[in-house]
Amino acid sequence: MAANYWESSQRKYWTFSKKGLADVRRAQESEPANKQLIATYPLPERRLLNIYFHLQLAKLAKRMSVRQQALATAQVYMRRYYTKVEIRTTNPYLVLATSLYLACKMEECPQHIRIVVGEARQLWPELISSDTSKLGECEFNLISTMNSQLIVHHPYRSFIDLQTTFSLVQEEVSLAWSAINDHFLTDLPLLHPPHVVAITAVLLAVVLKPTQGNLQSHAQSLQTAMSTIAVPPSNTAPTTAQARIQKLITWLAESSVSIEAVVDCVQELISLYDVWESFNEKQCKEQITRFVKALALDK
């Protein structure tokens, strides 16, 4: 992506500490007007909602064959937007479609506004208006709320470099790639710089043996992996895998990448996979529909 991450608006204004992010959210939730809404319209926990939004966005993106990069940007836009705006005051489907529409423009793969509205109507006919000006207005709102800071730096570029450094094999690449895609379902894009996420993805790919199943099924063995990272392997003759982990750890130690941050990313992903077990699409959908309809946000 364009521009220099270290001088970017992302680093300056859109990267939070954990506590900072929690404070922002708590403040939003404790606004008198929001308090009541929150009490009246319960929603699943944030990560479950994120999974739901991700699935919806991915469906919409697929219909329009949008590039992964734009999908990723749209996810970050949603995450940023909802740090400032209470979700129950919005129509999430409109925000979702608008995020994708704006992200496509940002990533130089623009889609016509009518196409976006049309496809969104196909997916959620009851929940989104056919009037394109609603999306246009929401776009303006999105840009305003994000302070017109629109460039998002993703882990993909760093990952492509790291892939060569650690000569990853195909399975590892795809495993790491899906770890990066999954991190958009968490708060990680608001908490850590993209290169930390990239290195986390490499670590996961190398530590886990991507022979069977996907990352999700590895949630358990990750715990073991964590201890491997914490305690570097002893002098006993290292296996090939251990040698690579060793290389990675040496590389990490010599780099200025914060190990703590990497560990935090790993944990965040593990807990995502954990929470995913309890994901119930139908329930998310119903609870969202309830407040959208009750508050006439779809009009």
Partner: peptide, 11 residues
């Protein structure tokens, strides 16, 4: 203003 993604009540 109902078009706004914000709550119409706060329009």
């Amino acid at each position: 203003m109902a078009a706004s993604p914000l709550n119409p009540a706060a329009a």
